[in-house]
Design a binder for these strands. Structure first.
Lengths: 210, 210
DNA sequence: AGTCGGTTTCAATCATCTTTGACTTTTACC
DNA sequence: GGTAAAAGTCAAAGATGATTGAAACCGACT
């Protein structure tokens, strides 16, 4: 991190303490996310988060007065990181003659295989029967959905003007990929899945008008 | 597992008490399944199950000494009912000139929209981070997967000989449908989803060689 | 310079609540 | 009367949030 010797207009977090505090909060939040992945949402207790973060529970509860505050921060953190990674993966520069559809399919597949997707998935499932969590998650989910559509439009501008086919392509991609990723959480991802992804790419080409 | 000393395959209740006992066990198991749907796996406590079943906890624990026993029975119950309903829906008689592919898609869609799918889904997600539950669920999941492939083969015998396309069709169908159903658990199922299903049916026709 | 007061970070303990499974008692049926 | 079903009571374990206590740090003042 940056040191504080700079005498510039440090509007935020100029103090050493504030910086340390921010860092600690970050550790806590990332520990919580790791717990969602490893232990599930239900198995994630404040005790476990604190242990993984290497703090006492009391210290943690100083930064986040209650568990729901940690969850709130984790959702936010997760969202921004996931969105950034997704955008970067989708809009990775490619040679002009590359199969951008296939690359996009691969990028989406990598996205849903990432632990962050698992964490978000755990939260989504828990939110189905937990209204408070649902209230926290809802805006984030909607934002991500909007962003995913926008990113796709940016990456495939030539698709403009074929709104029907474009929407269908996006919906289809999302459902196949998410269904496959979720199934792969329980049993093992196998060779046949690769074929499904190849088929999907083929059909996306058709929908684009190739 | 008090295997009564009686000889013969009289699994059905012979005595009045045994019959009542079986009936109560059934009520308990179905209450547990309803709880999975309404409250999620984590939210399903023995207290809630007993309340929904209209029994005292003590009475319930007489029939199922521990919570895991209820879960075990619920998984079994769920499996057999789900499998039966799926088979019936898939192999429903249709007029000879009907679009059996479209009917199959619809049947599968109805299947994943059924509360039993939600219950099973909750259990699957919980099993990801709960080895004991995973051990209970694994054989059941594998059995259902086998049965789904077998049922599809029975319903579409003309697909025989096109193994590659057939497998692809089944995988694709499953992933699209499950992905769509799971997404519909959080946000609302919309009109565009209908289009995706229609598209899926169209592509299944292609894969069959129509 | 050096010390004092106050604040921030971290640690530990406590009381409360929930869930679970064991145990005991009452009721109903054969 | 004896046996199974149902109900009620109990202690142990775990999780949460609040409170108290200790250590490090910052700014200010003599």
């Amino acid at each position: 991190m940056r040191d504080s010797s700079e005498s510039g207009p440090a509007t935020e977090a100029s103090g050493w303490q504030a910086q340390k505090s921010a860092s600690t909060r970050n550790v806590i939040v990332e520990s919580a996310i790791a717990c969602f992945v490893e232990l599930g949402y239900a198995g994630t207790t404040t005790t476990v988060i604190a242990k993984k973060a290497g703090l006492s529970r009391g210290a943690m509860l100083h930064h986040f007065p209650s568990k729901i505050d940690i969850v709130r921060a984790a959702v936010e953190h997760l969202h921004s990181k996931r969105l950034k990674a997704f955008r970067r993966a989708m809009s990775r520069p490619a040679p002009p003659d590359a199969d951008r559809v296939a690359l996009g399919v691969q990028a989406f597949w990598d996205h849903v295989r990432h632990p962050m997707f698992v964490a978000f998935f755990e939260l989504s499932v828990a939110a189905r029967t937990d209204p408070e969590l649902a209230g926290i998650l809802k805006p984030t989910q909607e934002a991500f959905e909007r962003e995913w559509y926008q990113t796709a439009r940016d990456v495939f501008p030539e698709w403009e003007g074929r709104g029907e086919e474009f929407d269908l392509a996006l919906d289809l991609t999302r459902y196949v990929m998410e269904g496959m990723a979720i199934a792969a959480l329980t049993h093992q991802a196998n060779e046949r899945d690769k074929r499904v992804r190849a088929y999907l790419a083929e059909k996306l080409h058709e929908l684009r008008g190739d």
